[in-house]
Design a protein around this nucleic acid. Structure first.
Lengths: 111, 111
DNA sequence: ACGATATACATCGTAATACGAGGTATTATA
DNA sequence: TATAATACCTCGTATTACGATGTATATCGT
């Protein structure tokens, strides 16, 4: 898929993934796989960014001798998710305009 | 609005704007204003990009002593619009996942 | 007559970000 | 005993939306 279309979407996507339960990198990737496959380099960049922006907090924990970093969403993070919902209605309106143009073709029978 | 969310959307948006009739820069901006306000610098970058990619052709014409460059969509351009429609259903699925998480809050009555 | 606004094009630099390539280390599985 | 899975990380690059800025003509109000 065109990576550009996902711009700005993934931050909120990661926030949504930790919305109801704290989670860690590897788990987030698995949870999001049905929706979008994001690479580790992409995810860790996003997690760093979200942490810097105060959207989530981090806690290190040991699990079977391996390090795990659990991420928890903050109030600012949930606010951001709400903002996303509003912005998305604007984005949808743009996309619907584009798709409407495609459908005009279909109705007119143009291949 | 977050500029990142518009990434990749604007190319298709401009193609949609010239889908049914040839148009020129200034007119495209006016036509798209109800959906999204894009600056001239943004538009001309996009038009150049789409031309290089063979998505549209350009024709110069004089109008009241002023230069106008009319843009016409190509077959590759209409193909691109169809591709967009397919990609958008994937993007929508991601957005719906995010929004679903927001709505869980609302149902639970969490502020 | 003259300034403001609209029309119409263009370039340059910057910030943001998705991702590939590569790295480290442990545990489980075939 | 390899191979995969788990689990973290950094660096560089390509893409692109946009602000700032520039050029030039037409139109409109006062």
């Amino acid at each position: 898929m065109d990576a550009q279309l996902k711009r700005g979407l993934l931050d909120s996507c990661v926030l949504a993934a930790i919305r109801n339960k704290d989670s860690y990198g590897y788990q987030i990737i698995k949870d999001l796989k049905p929706y979008t496959e994001l690479s580790e380099s992409t995810l860790y960049t996003i997690l760093k960014r979200l942490e810097s922006a105060g959207m989530l907090t981090v806690r290190s924990a040991e699990h079977n001798g391996r390090l795990r970093k659990y991420y928890r969403i903050t109030g600012a993070g949930t606010d951001r998710l709400r903002e996303f919902r509003e912005e998305w209605s604007e984005i949808s309106a743009i996309a619907e305009f584009i798709i409407r143009e495609c459908e005009n073709d279909d109705k007119a029978g143009i291949s």
